[in-house]
Amino acid sequence: MTRSRGNGDRAQSAVVGVAVLLGITVVGIGVLTAAAGAVVEEGATAAATARVADGIDDALDTGTVTETETTVRLADGTLRTADRTVRVLGDSGVVWSVNAGAVVYESRGRRVSAVAGAVTSGPGGRSGGSSMSAPPSVAAADGTLYVGVPALNASGTDAVSARGAALPVTLRTAPTHERRILPADRYRVAVETTAPAAWEREFRRRGTTTVRRDFDGDGVPSVVAAFPGERTVHLVVHDLRLEMEVGA
């Protein structure tokens, strides 16, 4: 006997959808403004990186949808932006993609990276030792897949490095938001990342199967997560229009 979905299931789906779509904005803006300060102030020992990850988690709870400006002081290491693409694939292949970009902090063999709404930290390279402290804004519920992607759309300085002396770096965001719905299909979400193991663990925890694929041949893999069954996609892109400049 097949059990029909009642009002409780639909209500749960609506709650999940609203929570994800609202949380996307918090993730995108919180990471790039409030969290960056914790990253560059702490340095890059293992213990410090753990504190950075905790600080990023806290920043996600205090994000804003308005224009923001934050000045951080870079005492050691490099803070930079990097090209990263997020794709949504259906049965016919790639149906949507965006250059989401990433903010990356590296020092003394440690790395913290914010991409596609998630934060990973750990040793540099792709040894598999990275962990995810803030998850992406992706959730499946009641025949729907909710996907949120902060896109940097960065301008100004691409990379800032400091050794010893405190160097002020100003981050500004002026976000806009675009929403769209993709029709029912069997969907996969692909995220380009230098910390694929952390993304694979997170996606598998959500009940997906994953593979790695280098879509553009640049040597940076994408983790492709397949969500079971046919679903419609509720997609939200937060264009942050990030500016990164040296100086207070």
Rank of each mutant, 00 (worst) to 15 (best):
G109N: 05
S131L: 07
R212I: 03
T194L: 12
V112E: 02
Y146D: 05
G43L: 11
A139H: 04
L21I: 08
P228T: 13
Q12W: 08
P196R: 00
Y146I: 09
R3Q: 11
G217V: 09
R3G: 09
G93M: 03
G17E: 07
D239M: 03
E67S: 15
D76V: 09
R172C: 01
G43H: 06
V138N: 00
T193Q: 01
G8M: 10
S113V: 10
S4I: 14
R213E: 14
T33G: 13
V88S: 01
P175V: 04
A184E: 15
V160P: 01
G93A: 06
E202W: 15
D216N: 14
W96S: 03
T45E: 11
R205K: 14
P150H: 03
E202K: 09
H234Q: 13
R213V: 13
G101F: 01
R241S: 12
R10E: 14
A48T: 06
R108Q: 14
D9Q: 14
P228N: 14
A100C: 04
G143W: 03
G8L: 06
G164L: 05
R231D: 11
A36T: 12
V211L: 11
E192A: 04
V223F: 03
L145T: 00
T194C: 11
G229F: 10
V237H: 02
I29T: 12
V16P: 00
F227M: 07
P196N: 01
G17I: 02
E69R: 15
R179L: 07
G117I: 06
A100K: 00
D57Q: 15
A248P: 12
L32R: 07
G43A: 10
V220Y: 08
A134Y: 02
R201N: 11
A114M: 03
S161L: 00
V31P: 00
V169R: 02
V191C: 02
L242A: 13
T144V: 13
G101M: 02
T157N: 11
T45G: 14
G217E: 12
D185N: 15
G143N: 09
E41G: 13
W96D: 03
E200K: 03
V20P: 00
R205E: 15
G8I: 13
L152F: 04
S127V: 07
